[in-house]
């Protein structure tokens, strides 16, 4: 079946790809290039779409903006707060679901719900859960003698609140992927390890972890990229504000503010481009680490 590629076959393949390619170009590739170019507009008349001057001053400007620095710090805190917890938690739950338990599909649905529910609805519900006077969370904490926390109005607690919401929101997807990965591991390896004298913990370390590494790798890349892009959750949870006293201002939120609220297209594009570079670098590092530690069968 595999013929040598000819001009004709290449052309035909290209035609098949064309619809998807067109959409990609119009909605992804073009905006990326355009926003990169826009980040270089230093003097721009957006009423008439004329650029008087190109330069790098947008970049130097944002790095001198304390809000941008704050956005980067907040985003980093968010990524560090969400990704590891989310991975560990979803792996633990997936392992639990993978062992023989009753009403398995019921639990799967429960954990998958957040993934299919709209962020806005989720955020409204969590807005209630976090409510300082009537919220469920404070009610539960009350049992442990903890005083009510102003989750959404105290700058100290708004980031933890956002992290809790995002971890919960990401669980469903991660669990499903982990479950698929776990079910792909041949049970024989566990039997062999058991005969070889491995305790349950050692079986987890020596069989589950290495054989799950491709899944783990995939999930960590996706989670990190998603965490860097966090926006909707903030917008919905804090009613269109980046948290009290900018406490949950992230890079994407910063881009949004510059673009839609201040009409600073150059600055917005420069910030977006910086985020792109950061995510790109992270992914490169992960890919090279992955080559070393991930075992593909």
């Amino acid at each position: 079946m595999m013929d040598k590629p000819t001009w004709k076959s290449t052309l035909r393949a290209f035609l098949y790809l064309l619809p998807a390619l067109l959409i990609l170009i119009v909605f992804n590739i073009y905006p990326i290039i355009k926003s990169f170019l826009m980040s270089l507009y230093t003097d721009y008349d957006f009423y008439n779409d004329v650029v008087y001057e190109y330069g790098l001053s947008n970049f130097s400007d944002i790095f001198q903006d304390p809000n941008f620095i704050k956005a980067i710090v907040n985003t980093t805190v968010f990524v560090i707060g969400v990704v590891p917890v989310s991975i560990v938690l979803s792996l633990a739950i997936a392992i639990m679901l993978n062992s023989k338990i009753k009403a398995l599909s019921f639990f799967r649905t429960i954990y998958f719900l957040p993934f299919v529910t709209s962020v806005v609805a989720v955020a409204i519900v969590w807005g209630w859960i976090f409510h300082s006077d009537y919220g469920l969370l404070n009610y539960f904490l009350g049992f442990f003698g903890i005083d009510p926390i102003e989750w959404l109005t105290d700058p100290t607690y708004s980031m933890p609140a956002l992290i809790i919401l995002s971890v919960w929101k990401g669980l469903g997807f991660n669990i499903i992927i982990f479950l698929a990965g776990l079910q792909n591991i041949n049970k024989q390896y566990y039997l062999a390890a058991q005969v070889d004298g491995a305790s349950a913990w050692h079986r987890f370390l020596s069989v589950t972890i290495p054989l799950l590494s491709p899944t783990m790798f995939f999930i960590s890349i996706i989670s990190i990229i998603n965490a860097f892009k966090v926006f909707d959750e903030i917008f919905a949870l804090f009613n269109g504000r980046p948290g009290p006293a900018n406490s949950t201002l992230t890079v994407v939120y910063y881009v949004y503010q510059k673009f839609y609220e201040e009409w600073e297209f150059g600055l917005a594009s420069a910030a977006a481009f910086v985020l792109f570079i950061i995510v790109f670098l992270f992914t490169l590092i992960q890919l090279s680490l992955g080559k070393k530690f991930v075992h593909y069968q």
């Binding site: 039997l191 062999a192 005969v195 020596s206 075992h295």
Partner: peptide
């Protein structure tokens, strides 16, 4: 894990991510 037996499985069940040496060393490491 406490019976001190050795077993050869029908499809061998060698740990795919470990080298031959590490496979053989595995029971000793445990």
């Amino acid at each position: 894990e406490k019976r001190e037996i050795g077993m050869v499985f029908q499809n061998y069940a060698l740990y795919p991510h470990l080298s031959v040496l590490k496979n053989i060393m595995f029971p000793l490491r445990m």
